[in-house]
Simulated scan of single mutants.
Amino acid sequence: MNKRVSFVAVIVWMVAGCANAQLLWKISGNGLVKPSYLFGTHHLIDKDRIKGFDQILALSGKADAVVGEMDLNNPDIKATMEEAEMMQDTTLKELLTPQDYAMVDYEFKNLMQVGLSQLGNVKPMLLDMMFSVMMYTKMMGFSKQPEGVDVIFQKNAEANHKKVIGLETPEQEANILFNTIPLERQADILMNDIKHSQQGLEQVNELTTAYLAGNMVRVETLNDEDDSLTPAEKQLMFDDRNAAWMKELPGLIKKQSCFIDVGFIHLIGKSGLIHQLRKLGYTVEPLLLQEKYIHKVAPGYNN
């Protein structure tokens, strides 16, 4: 397993004093009547580990709309994902050597008491995500995967009769996650993660530590050093998606105040949302949450 766990939709963390300063951002200027907000999420962190989460949640409830990677209440999600996750013309036994197949079968039986006799038609990328989540959950001592904060933001929006807007349709997300990388390459990624799982856990722990500290500069460095995906694959998973979202976001924040929550990796770098919004003329400032109010702090991440 490796830092690719950051995009798990199943699959982008805070606890240190200044964490919010780098993960929560205010978007203003460039003709906006009301400010919007941008928050970097980690799909596997329990809300109770997030410093000031109640204040962040309250802030999201004050916006006119919550914008996420996908509207998680879309009725088409389950059927669309289930169809995209399954292989039609091959099986894992055909994609792997007998030795590698036996290794994957053993790992899944050990982690979730289900072997490849039941999972052999599942695409390797989904198996990789499942393995990553299970290993991380085990490392953290959780009995189950925590409820994602993106789910909580959307539930809160609905409870407050606010709009929920997805930047991608279920079809788009399913295609990105399971169809853009060839099955043979997916199988290679799965085997690499299983064979180097301890190293992967150490990498995830290091990335998580940087996230919890709000150290976006370190997050970007670690992401750049991660070679689990090729540059072309990273572009498909991150850069191209950011570019597509940036075609939607200016219109959304012009029309209403939005609380935008996406995986934190989508915030960093020259293709990240922070840099792209600034290029369009918006002021994007990090915010620090305190006991009863939010105030600006000096930017520590200026990409």
Rank of each mutant, 00 (worst) to 15 (best):
V10F: 13
L23Q: 13
L24P: 00
K34L: 03
Y37F: 15
L38E: 09
Q55M: 11
G61V: 03
K62Q: 11
D64W: 00
D64F: 01
A65V: 08
A65I: 02
A65G: 11
V67D: 10
N73K: 06
N73H: 11
N74L: 00
P75T: 03
K78L: 05
A79F: 06
E94V: 00
L95A: 06
Q99F: 14
M103S: 14
V104L: 06
Y106S: 14
F108D: 10
M112S: 11
V114K: 09
S117Q: 12
S117F: 11
K123V: 03
M125Q: 08
M130H: 05
F131I: 13
F131K: 05
T137L: 00
F142L: 07
E147L: 10
E147V: 15
Q154T: 14
A157M: 02
A157R: 00
I165L: 09
I165D: 06
L167H: 02
A174W: 06
I176P: 01
N179H: 11
E184R: 12
E184D: 14
Q186Y: 07
K195D: 13
L201I: 11
L201Q: 07
N205Q: 15
L207A: 13
A210R: 04
G214V: 07
N215S: 06
D224K: 09
E225V: 02
D226Y: 08
T230W: 07
M237H: 03
D240R: 05
A244M: 05
K247P: 05
E248M: 08
E248K: 15
G251L: 00
Q256H: 09
I260C: 03
D261C: 12
I265A: 12
L273I: 13
Q276T: 04
E285Q: 15
Y293N: 14
Y293D: 15
H295K: 15
V297P: 01
A298Q: 14
A298G: 14
G300I: 03
N302K: 06
